[in-house]
Design a protein around this nucleic acid. Structure first.
Lengths: 213, 213
DNA sequence: TAGATTGTTAATCGATTAACAATC
DNA sequence: TAGATTGTTAATCGATTAACAATC
């Protein structure tokens, strides 16, 4: 794991993990790069190249042992590090994320939900009770969450990011329709769900263009 | 717009659109590839190359006219085609998508929401009333939705896809934690929100590795 | 051992960046 | 006209695929 892994490889890892953990769940013991390549619709060569960035965990003449592969992948992606997280902004989206994303499967534990709306504070959401964002400084000092999930309005997101960074949060999963740039010691993942809808409409338009010509 | 646009370029389009439509909203009339490159943290060269896949809409010595650019981008992405859509599966996620995604901005109009749970059928959700999935054949014949947004459980998604494809739906925005492959005349966008969380934990793990060495 | 499949090097392909002539 | 910035070609860089020796 010495030299830097190319970004193109890194971005494929979650998809590998999905397929491998599914095989593992099904108690399948062995998979070859060829079999996996057919399932995933990528070349076997790419799979072998990709895996080898992290050291060879296959065996010549046999293939890959699924439990080993699953374990290595989990290690690489950090899904058994048991990171802690908070969700800030409990509107429709925050609520859906709190209740829909399988955090456990990805090694993340939700410590608490926060909102600034007095209507919401104190109300339950899933297994949690929504707390006041005003209590965040105290909360962070005590519980030291690793990650903050930002599901608040666009204009409030950057401010909250700055505050939480100050309070020691190191990872941000940002759904606020604005791009927060990762700086020095923090990692930021900006999610723009709408982008994928635009790719769909692009392809739909492309399809009708084709059929008309 | 003759030769095929590289996939790498296509995937950057939604991000361009976000930045350009923001400039447009701010009534800014002019932007150069250099200015845009600084805002977006990409090279000016890449911006010019990318835009030129769709024909030159800049002007030498001046830059790009923002309204023109915005209009071209909208055209390319199909956001003023006025596509119609339905949402199938109104759990937490379906509910959040119905109420959180700015469909209008992307040229998509929601015609209706559908679920199979008798508890939900007839209940309101935003401006809509949840209808029975059993009414889909009739509904599709009459209203011909272009797109189906699949926010139902993993195991039900593929079946629903097959049924809706049969009923003439051509675009699928799939949130069901399973990969549906696009076939012949349909376009599928599979969304795996969790993948982005894993990229975040990957980077967090990487960061702590670095600081420990 | 023979067959299979990895790990890895070399070849190809595509994407990004640099450079600059064209031109507004 | 002089200055600026595009459109586009050429050079570089990185990613993917092919091929095969190593080896289980």
């Amino acid at each position: 794991m010495a030299k830097k892994v190319p970004i193109a490889v890194v971005r494929r890892l979650p998809r590998y993990f999905r397929y491998i953990s599914e095989l593992y769940r099904q108690n399948i013991m062995k998979v070859s790069s060829k079999e996996l390549s057919e399932k995933m619709q990528v070349t076997a060569s790419q799979i072998r190249q990709d895996f080898n960035h992290f050291g060879g965990f296959g065996q010549q003449g046999y293939g890959y042992n699924v439990p080993t592969l699953n374990n290595e992948m989990s290690q690489i992606l950090g899904v058994n590090e048991n990171f802690s997280a908070i969700i800030v902004g409990i509107g429709n989206l925050g609520h859906a994320i709190a209740n829909n994303v399988n955090f456990t499967k990805r090694g993340v534990r939700i410590l608490g939900l926060f909102d600034s709306d007095p209507e919401k504070i104190g109300k339950p959401c899933g297994v949690h009770v929504i707390a006041d964002v005003a209590s965040l400084p105290e909360f962070c000092k005590k519980s030291r969450p690793d990650v903050a999930i930002l599901t608040l309005p666009k204009n409030a997101a950057k401010d909250m990011f700055d505050r939480l960074k100050e309070l020691g949060v190191r990872g941000f999963w940002n759904f606020s329709n604005t791009e927060i740039r990762s700086e020095d010691g923090v990692a930021v993942e900006n999610v723009h769900i709408g982008d994928s809808l635009m790719l769909l409409t692009y392809r739909l338009r492309e399809m009708s263009d084709d059929s008309e010509n």
